[in-house]
Design a protein around this nucleic acid. Structure first.
Lengths: 227, 227
DNA sequence: ACCTGAACACCGTTCAAGT
DNA sequence: ACCTGAACACCGTTCAAGT
């Protein structure tokens, strides 16, 4: 139990760490999009040779996996953990919290749905959701299916939104995004696709958070156990 | 109106076409995954120099866009066009048809959700869906939102499924996929995440088409206009 | 108009070597 | 254990040139 029995470093300075690599990857992702988090880019950003990254991660997929896990670990569980709240409100709080977190790093969203989310933080979130649905009165089978349905909705809607915004232009605050969407949909030929054009105009009139909550509530309506 | 006023080709043989390029891209995608459809790979497959592709498409994004449009154009509209059928059955037919088509080319699914689906075939499908929802009695706003919800569900669930299967191993027929999924989820630590482990076991007992239809029907329940 | 050769600026990853 | 230099086999894209 000596106060400082740290073994002496024989090699060069320990300038890297898993955390610093993920930090760099996230920064690159944030202002360069999903493809910007290259091994070489990360290495350059932390001031090291490209292959030095392989001391900490076996390959790029492992870096991405660790990054996804970190982001899922940042989700605040308190906002939906209160068992005094009605279960629907708790699911909504979880869905909104997830959306808020992922919206901070749009470039990471394609990476999340690109691979299986099976890390401990992902499983912890899934576990919470299943508890919630059990509280709601769903049996094991229905809870399993409903949780999968909710996960598909949350990640699917965020992914589609990110894909649209990414193509329409760089990131903008929520209020400005409406006009951008209206612009993107303006190209819809009204004569051939009248309903699509009208729908696009309608959607553009709402803040995307409203759309998100509307869909979530329809979904909860469908899931709610019937008497 | 001469029978053959085609201008003489001065350059080398016209060995390429938009269609042949897309054919090659699809083949590469099918047995190599989402990243296999490279410009250089396509060119090699049609027996041409890499930059020859740029005669027909301005960049790789245009190739992907055209490929997505082609696949959406292959969707059979007849299976859900019959206005005599109840609207829910028609939506289910559309959702199943889309899933069947996309499952034939799993490698193309990430490309679809990666960019906006705003081509004529995509809009035509959206138009059909909006007609369906209008028949169901939804007003313009609800139909717009409901169609978006359905699109998120269809593409989101297929994307998540593809991501899982791609990581679990190469493509397998529906029946064999169950055991693969059971194997993938077997790693779930039962002590720390009891509900997740149980849910994984439950999900593995069902064919994924059943899960898909279950979610779709819950969603339709939530969408169905209430008296 | 259609295609090629060569080049540029990137990738992920490996291997041998240095401390 | 940690890091570098050099190399390998890839990318997408551009430019000048040939028919």
């Amino acid at each position: 139990m000596s106060t400082s029995a740290l073994p002496r470093r024989r090699g060069p300075r320990r300038s890297l760490s898993e955390a610093s690599i993920l930090d760099a990857a996230l920064v690159l992702l944030d202002d360069g999009g999903p493809d910007a988090a290259s091994i070489r880019g990360i290495a350059a950003r932390v001031g090291v040779a490209p292959n030095a990254v392989y001391t900490y991660f076996p390959d790029k997929a492992a870096v991405v996996k660790a990054l996804v896990e970190r982001l899922l670990g940042e989700v605040d569980h308190d906002v939906f953990a209160d068992p005094e709240q009605p279960w629907r409100a708790r699911v909504e709080a979880l869905a909104l919290e997830l959306r808020d977190r992922l919206s901070l790093h749009p470039g990471a969203v394609p990476l999340m749905i690109g691979g299986p989310m099976d890390g401990p933080h992902a499983l912890a979130l899934n576990e919470r959701l299943l508890e919630l649905l059990a509280d709601a009165g769903l049996d094991g089978t229905d809870a399993a299916r409903a949780s999968y349905l909710l996960i598909v909705y949350v990640f699917g809607s965020i992914a589609l939104e990110v894909a649209d915004v990414h193509h329409a232009g760089p990131l903008a605050p929520e209020t400005d995004r409406i006009s951008a969407r209206r612009g993107a949909f303006a190209a819809t030929p009204t004569e051939k696709f009248p309903r699509s054009a009208a729908a696009a105009a309608t959607m553009a009139d709402y803040v995307s958070t409203e759309q998100y909550l509307w869909g979530l509530r329809r979904l909860l309506d469908g899931i709610t156990p019937r008497p």
